[in-house]
Design a protein around this nucleic acid. Sequence first.
DNA 1: CCTACCGATCGGTAGG
DNA 2: CCTACCGATCGGTAGG
Lengths: 201, 201
Amino acid sequence: MSPRRSAAEALGTRAAILDRSVGIASLEGLEGLTIGRLATELGMSKSGVLGHFGSKEALQLAVLDRAGQIFRTEVWEPALPAAPGLARLRVLCEAWISYLERGVFPGGCFFVAAAHEFDGRPGPVRDAVAARFDAWRARLDKEAGRAVDAGDLPEGTEPGQLVFELLGLVMALNHALQLHRDNRAATYARRGVRARLGSAC
Amino acid sequence: MSPRRSAAEALGTRAAILDRSVGIASLEGLEGLTIGRLATELGMSKSGVLGHFGSKEALQLAVLDRAGQIFRTEVWEPALPAAPGLARLRVLCEAWISYLERGVFPGGCFFVAAAHEFDGRPGPVRDAVAARFDAWRARLDKEAGRAVDAGDLPEGTEPGQLVFELLGLVMALNHALQLHRDNRAATYARRGVRARLGSAC
DNA sequence: CCTACCGATCGGTAGG
DNA sequence: CCTACCGATCGGTAGG
């Protein structure tokens, strides 16, 4: 039967589709996410799934948004109570590493995976991924700049260089965890961060 | 017509299939590489393509081998004339960065892309990718160990930590080039390497 | 939200 | 190396 649902029910269904999509796409990629599989797993028809988004591309963009909310909750928000500048940058890096260690997304960092999947495919999905990285790097740059201005980092530290290196440490950690399930990697990543940002105590 | 070819011709055909496959897979991934597309681009039938490998998975493994040959030529062999230890490690890092800058593979580092595509999909392809990374890291570890033993690196340098950080710098460079076409990234990567390995002059 | 359907494409096989 | 074909699945649409 499944008659037309109320607006509230429809929102719940949409949220359920997105949550399931995030899990699938994390492991299989945003292209590996198919309407048919989603429908089967959710006990819906394909057109029922597609009706919430209109097209697969629109679904992929909505999934990116949902993943972005999760990232914000897990990595950005924990750092807000910390003082802007070096203190916040340290909390941010620890939350970032912890987010990978805890496997918030089963396939590792959702955005690193999406970046690799779409960097060779022009279009709205690629643009959305790039925009999210730009915004994230801008935030890190800002905190790094504040830390430099406050004299909390070694003289001559360039925010762009520092953020590039921090991103590299996190990407190497993501890679080691996902491909090798290498436990030493988190230690390496934390030591790398400490070498650049110093220790809090 | 296209009657059965000689063994030499068949080898040439196989090589042509692999070269085309490397280009496609670099941009679209090893799953995005399809027999049908390959056949069309090469002016062959699907079964003609598949006959050389037997299955798509066997083709993917052969493509990984071919990409490995290219990587060896572009990154490993240039470093062989250098003295083992620090000198070779420096040449290796420069060749590695240059390989990304020159776009030896149109979609960036073939193995980083393959690692992200398959790290969530158990099977022979994933295993082959992981084995290649293991071998590569073992080589870098060995050179780093020699450099430490020779006293050419700061006291207390741990090879595993050093190699982890070098891998991070290269991954951040690959990401910046592919997603952002960011020219400053190569400068950041080289500065990062120099901060860890010192300058040759 | 459903059923029923579309054309296209997938990996792969039979037989030559 | 080919033609001809298989069942399965893809994204998406029509109509309700």
